[in-house]
Every structure is written in structure tokens, then in C-alpha cells.
Nucleic acid binder design. Structure first.
Lengths: 246, 246
DNA sequence: ATTTAATGTGTAAAATACACACATTCTTAA
DNA sequence: TTAAGAATGTGTGTATTTTACACATTAAAT
């Protein structure tokens, strides 16, 4: 998505006028990157959206995006947007799909490369947010600008697939988490109910959870153990699981 | 890839000069589509490449690509290239990844959307080919122009994954094929050996192979039965197998 | 102290994946 | 014509993975 809504707020974002000038001349096109930033909060999968205050798109929501700079790689543009909007570095990021329908953007031909990224909402909340940024339920979000619903759907489907093949979920959780939180995450993303015992068995058998010897605090029931994800163990084992190339 | 090599041969391809003019001005970029066209022949996975006759890239091979027209959708551009280069319509086509490194193209900023497509080589051979188009072994192909080796690798890995989830392989075979041919295809793409009995069992249990009541002809051994892929049966069943969305 | 609500654990059945051998059919060469 | 060679075609038992399922334990709240 192009940050057409708040040129004043962003130091680096381009305004609608800039985009129009980029694409106005014959045969010109603009290239943008849109980030689908997923979070997990209140046992629901969330996505970070910005509300357009431009009259034309009043009340509609957009993904976070920007034009790609002339001398900037695609991934670099995506990381720049993430840093700019969440204040966080080193987030999980994956290119998903490029959307280039001729009429997808009213300002002219704007081709956008969609990225899926994962953040720990609690971590993010500590940062000072721009006013118009909010977390929305992925399943119930409506009123998108442009083709951003389609982009969100593509990234959500990719996430559903990926999380069944790789342990991505940890990017959405605090460093220390209970198995219940982990299961809630999987159930929310995949929209299924899982058997608690089998879920625990599966994750323990994968053997990349480390017991922190700490317990949950301030929960209104018996506290569960807290675990953390052990990247070293995972790195050693993933080749075996995922065969060919991962 | 941009068809910089043979502007005279192509009715629709753009010449190097065209590309340079597209990207020469400040902040301009060009958008292209590159098709990784896979085939299967002599029990090996092949890819259709064009040899550059431009001095700068002498002896190097490129994927088939072209600039996207100003009023052309990305998929449409990919289909156009396939039609142009193979003479065939309705090929399997899937967008894989977009490559946009700043320096990936010597003519300036050219962002390319990579597509993976599958053709029946026998079918394709019936068409009159352009001189400089040839099928190459995927595993042993070297000397690529630009970042086309990287693009090929990305599409090959995607194909390896996809073929384990969906019955794509039929796009690479004649309408009627023996189980041995089908197994050879899987073994070639996945680079593994499979047990013949278990392979047969698995495909028969999927129940979308229809017996044609015909046998192989002109093989130097006992002929095998010929089957065809039953799309109707597949469509009815795939939801059950692939769960959420496929 | 009692109730409540979630954590933590094991086992049996079912489904799936894997390993494996021999008879059959057709071609080819003696 | 016959024998040898080479690939097709088929079934079963074993190992592994997935699924279903119930009860005792712990801490918080009343």
C-alpha cells in the first residue's frame, strides 16, 4: 500500500501527489511494498492497519506500505516500513506475492510486492504508535482500501501453510510462553480445535522447547510452566525434517 | 528476463534500447515477467532457455521474459510470453517470486516477476520453434545471464514442494501415460528413488487415474497400461485432502 | 475448607507409511 | 521354437504416526 494518507506524519513516506507524478506520464509505473504485519493478542490473530483520513477512502483500512526507493532492494523497503511503523528490527519477513492488476490503484499503474511479517504485539505496544495505526482482528476485518483485502487473504493463507511446516509461531509470542498460549496461537491461526495432550506431545517430541523453570504469573487459575523456543536445537534438526532445502 | 537478444525475431518483445529508455530517466523503473518453463523429456526435468547472441552475454542462457505492457496484468503478460514462445495456451502457470535487486539488470532498475509453468515437451515439439530456444537439463544447466539461475532455483524449489501437495505432474506428461513414466517424473523432480509398489498403491488410492484400456506401444519390454488423469475426480476430492483452502 | 478451573500426564486404537518377493508378460537373441 | 532377459503387476506384514480419550493435581477464589 502506498502511504497516501498522512504525508505529514511520515518522514519517508510519499504523498499521493508524489505517486501521481510517478505514474502520470505515459507508460510509467510505480513500485510499492505492502507489509501484512500480523500480531497475536487476546487469543486472536491481528493485523496492523492504518485508517485512511483521505476523503476518498474515508473509513477504509490499508496495509502498511510505501513506494520502493529507486536504489532500494525490495526486502530493504519492507524492513524500512516495518522499522518505521513498529519501531522494531529483525522481524520475521517473507515475500508472498506481487499484485499488479492494471486498475488496482486509482493513481495509475502501481505494482505492489506483498510481504508477510510477524511481530510480538506486547513488544510493539511499548513503542509509541502513530495515531492512525491499530490492530484489527484478521477474521472480522472489513472495509479495505484498494485490493488490500485480497493481499491480506493471500498472506494469511501463506501463514497458515508456513506455520504447519516451520515453527514461525514463536515470532508472535513473548520470549517466554506457556504451552496453552502456544496452542491458542495455533488454534487461532488455523481456525481449528486441537487436543491438548496431543499438542503437547507433538511439541515436546520436536524437542526445541526449553523449560525456563518459571511459571505463569497473575493468571486466575493454576499457573503453567513457561517455555522458550530454542533456536539452536531447531537449526540442527530442521534439515532432517524438511528434507531438501530448508 | 528481458528479451534483449533478438528484437528482430520477436514481434512483441522489446529491444535493449526500449528497456534502456524505459529506465534511463531518474527514478524510473521497468517491470518484466520471466517464465521458467519446465518440461520433462528423456526422464529428466528440462527448462526452456534462450541463448543470448548479444556480445555482452555471449554463450549465456536466459529465461523467457518480456517487459509488461502498460495496460497488461502480470498474469496476462506471462501467458503472452508462453503463447509466444511455445505456441501453447492454457498452460499451468503460477507466480513464484519477484526479484528486484537494484543491480540485477545492467540496463537499470528492472524488477521482474517470476512465473513457473509446465508444458508437455512432446506437444511443444510439434510447434515450430525459434532457433535460439532449447531445452536444458535443470540440474546441469549453467552459464545463466543476470540472476536467472537464482530465479530458476526458486521456481524449481517451488515445483518440488507443489508437486508433493497437488497433482501437477500431469501437465508435464502426454495425456496418456504409464505409471512408470509418472514415477520417473516424480523421481526426476524430487531427486529420489521410490518403491514401485508403494508408488502405484499411493496413486491408485488417490483414485484420479483412469485406465484407458490401452497399452504402451513400441517399448522394448512388456508394455504397461496407459492411464489418464481424471480432473473431475480430482476436483471433487482435493478439498478433502488439502483442507482449508485449496 | 470447599469449590472452581486450568494444568499435567499415558495408553490403546486407527491410519498411514514403509519394506519386501514372486509370478506374469512381452521382447529379443540364440 | 525356445530360452533368457527385463519390466510389469500384485499383497502382506511391520513400523511409525496420528488420533481419541479420562483422571489426578495444583493454585486461585470464595
Amino acid at each position: 500500500m502506498i502511504t497516501i494518507t498522512n504525508g505529514k506524519q511520515l518522514r519517508q513516506g510519499k504523498t499521493l501527489q508524489t505517486i501521481q507524478s510517478e505514474v502520470a506520464e505515459t507508460n510509467r509505473l510505480a513500485l510499492s511494498v505492502d507489509c501484512v504485519i500480523f500480531g497475536f493478542d487476546e487469543n486472536k490473530l491481528k493485523v496492523l492497519l492504518i485508517r485512511s483520513d483521505l476523503k476518498k477512502y474515508e473509513g477504509r483500512y490499508s496495509l502498511l506500505g510505501d513506494l520502493v526507493y529507486p536504489a532500494e532492494d525490495l526486502d530493504a523497503a519492507a524492513y524500512r516500513i516495518l522499522k518505521q511503523r513498529t519501531g522494531l528490527n529483525d522481524l520475521y519477513l517473507e515475500q508472498v506475492q506481487t499484485f499488479g492488476a492494471v486498475d488496482r490503484h486509482p493513481a495509475g499503474r502501481v505494482v505492489t510486492v506483498a510481504y508477510c511479517s510477524l511481530v510480538n504485539v506486547q513488544h510493539h505496544k511499548l513503542k509509541i504508535l502513530e495515531n492512525e495505526l491499530h490492530w484489527h482482528d484478521v477474521k472480522s476485518a472489513v472495509d479495505f482500501a484498494f485490493d488490500h483485502k485480497e493481499i491480506l487473504d493471500a498472506c494469511y493463507e501463506r501463514l497458515q501453510k508456513r506455520i504447519q511446516e516451520h515453527p514461525l509461531g514463536f515470532n508472535l509470542l513473548p520470549k517466554k510462553f506457556s504451552l496453552r498460549e502456544l496452542q491458542n496461537l495455533y488454534e487461532a491461526i488455523l481456525d481449528v480445535k486441537m487436543d491438548r495432550r496431543n499438542f503437547r506431545k507433538k511439541f515436546f517430541s520436536m524437542d526445541f522447547l526449553t523449560d525456563t523453570n518459571e511459571m505463569e504469573q497473575d493468571v486466575p487459575h493454576r499457573p503453567g510452566k513457561l517455555y522458550k523456543f530454542n533456536y539452536e536445537k531447531y537449526e540442527k534438526k530442521k534439515k532432517k525434517w524438511f528434507g531438501i532445502d530448508f
